[in-house]
Each structure stands twice: as structure tokens, then as C-alpha cells.
Computed example of a mutant assay.
Amino acid sequence: MIPTGEPSERGQLIRATIVEYDDKVDECTLHPVAPDDDKRITEWITAQQGSYSSLDAWR
């Protein structure tokens, strides 16, 4: 699905942050760009490298 409309009409933007580790598997965290203070520690999801797949693989 491709979002339409102006950014303010689409809702909150999501950022992917990848953390590379020397001693364990890298991780990718999806989180809001500007979360509300009361939701800052609850609106995110993290996955280790190898545990996620492309959207095309699921279509």
C-alpha cells in the first residue's frame, strides 16, 4: 500500500533504525519519528537480522 495525501494527512511517519553489533546479530527497530512523550517507550518494534523478510515475499 502506498500512502496518499499530504504527510500531515497520512498520520505519523515511521523511521527504521538499524544497529550493528560486533558481538551479536544486528537489529532493526521501527519507531515513530516524533512520538508523544507518554507513548515514547511503547510505540516501537525491534527485530533481529534474519527474522524479517521483504514485503514482496508476502504478496
Rank of each mutant, 00 (worst) to 15 (best):
M1G: 14
M1D: 14
M1E: 12
M1F: 11
I2C: 12
I2Q: 10
P3I: 05
T4I: 08
T4C: 08
G5D: 02
E6I: 09
E6Q: 13
P7E: 09
S8Y: 15
S8G: 15
S8Q: 15
E9F: 08
E9N: 10
E9M: 12
R10Y: 11
R10K: 14
R10E: 12
R10H: 11
G11F: 02
Q12F: 04
L13P: 10
I14F: 08
I14M: 09
I14Y: 08
R15S: 06
A16C: 15
T17Y: 00
T17L: 00
I18K: 14
I18N: 09
I18M: 13
V19H: 06
V19S: 08
E20M: 02
Y21S: 07
Y21F: 15
Y21G: 05
Y21R: 03
D22R: 02
D23N: 01
K24H: 09
V25H: 04
D26I: 01
D26K: 04
E27W: 11
E27G: 14
C28G: 05
T29P: 00
T29Q: 00
L30E: 01
L30D: 00
L30K: 02
H31Y: 09
P32D: 00
P32A: 01
V33I: 09
V33M: 12
V33Q: 11
V33R: 12
A34R: 07
A34Y: 07
P35W: 00
P35A: 02
P35I: 01
D36E: 07
D36T: 03
D37N: 11
D38V: 14
D38W: 10
D38T: 15
K39R: 06
K39T: 03
K39V: 02
K39A: 07
R40K: 14
R40Q: 15
R40D: 13
I41K: 15
I41N: 14
T42I: 06
T42L: 04
T42Q: 05
E43K: 03
W44C: 06
W44F: 12
W44K: 06
W44R: 05
W44G: 02
I45L: 12
I45E: 08
I45S: 12
I45H: 08
T46Q: 10
T46E: 07
A47Q: 13
A47V: 11
A47G: 12
Q48D: 12
Q48K: 10
Q49G: 05
Q49T: 07
Q49P: 00
G50Y: 08
G50P: 02
G50L: 05
S51C: 03
S51N: 07
S51M: 04
Y52E: 15
Y52R: 13
S53D: 03
S53V: 01
S53N: 03
S53A: 04
S54P: 00
S54T: 02
L55K: 06
L55V: 06
L55Q: 06
D56S: 10
A57S: 10
A57G: 05
R59N: 13
R59G: 15
R59F: 13
R59D: 12
R59W: 13
R59Y: 14
